[in-house]
């Protein structure tokens, strides 16, 4: 297992820890479907992925994961309100154009939402900005001109977003290299995992 795979696996483990066994899961921007495959094996979930990219849809089929090819930017019109236990957006939030809309859609379709995203407040990122350059790192491996990430945020930003959008945070896990970070997570955490629900 290389560093990227290890980082990915820790992301999977952090999400799986939040998911009740046997739950129904919708994974938005599911990529190659390996998270769903992991949740299927570890948590016996009933899972579906949503993915726009042809190569990823093919990868999901190869991995034996249910996948629905659809454009998340157009919302989740094909999914009924409250039809899933969890709607997951793993490492995709920062690449969405309609970020606000998709989080609200997650909470319409799912009882709970789970997001993971690279923390832009991580010290490495801050240091690179201080040095006058856009951050490039393991969790943000792109140059400013070729990045799919258009809505990067910090852990504090996301928490403020939840407050202003009547979202209750149920759990937060912050990781760096797969290890939990409890001390000053917005500075020392590179990856954030949030589980949340809509305030009634």
């Amino acid at each position: 297992m290389n560093a990227t795979e290890r980082a990915r696996r820790s992301d999977f483990e952090a999400i799986a820890a939040h998911v009740e066994p046997g739950a129904s899961v919708l994974d938005l921007g599911c990529g190659d479907g390996l998270l769903l495959d992991y949740l299927k094996q570890q948590r016996k979930v009933r899972g579906y992925g949503v993915e726009i990219d042809d190569a990823n849809v093919l990868a999901c089929v190869k991995n034996g994961v249910n996948v629905i090819q659809s454009d998340l930017e157009r919302g989740l019109a094909g999914f009924d309100a409250g039809s899933f236990d969890y709607v997951i957006l793993s490492q995709t939030l920062q690449a969405m154009r309609h970020t606000e809309a998709i989080v609200m859609e997650m909470l319409r379709v799912g009882r709970q939402g789970i997001v993971t995203f690279p923390n832009f407040g991580y010290w490495e990122a801050r240091l690179q900005i201080m040095a006058g350059r856009m951050p490039v790192s393991k969790v943000l491996p792109y140059q400013w001109y070729d990045t799919p990430n258009v809505h990067l945020c910090t852990i504090h930003d996301f928490e403020a977003f939840c407050v202003s959008h009547d979202i209750r945070i149920l759990e937060r896990v912050v990781l760096t290299d797969g290890r939990p970070v409890n001390f000053m997570p917005n500075l020392f955490g590179s990856l954030a995992v949030f589980r949340f629900e809509k305030l009634k």
Partner: peptide, 21 residues
């Protein structure tokens, strides 16, 4: 096709759907 996919999702059936451009 999506009408059918939706009906299958409602039943939690195993379904994959591709929309080919």
């Amino acid at each position: 096709s999506r009408e059918i996919v939706k009906a299958l999702l409602d039943n939690r059936a195993d379904v994959s759907y591709a929309e080919i451009d």
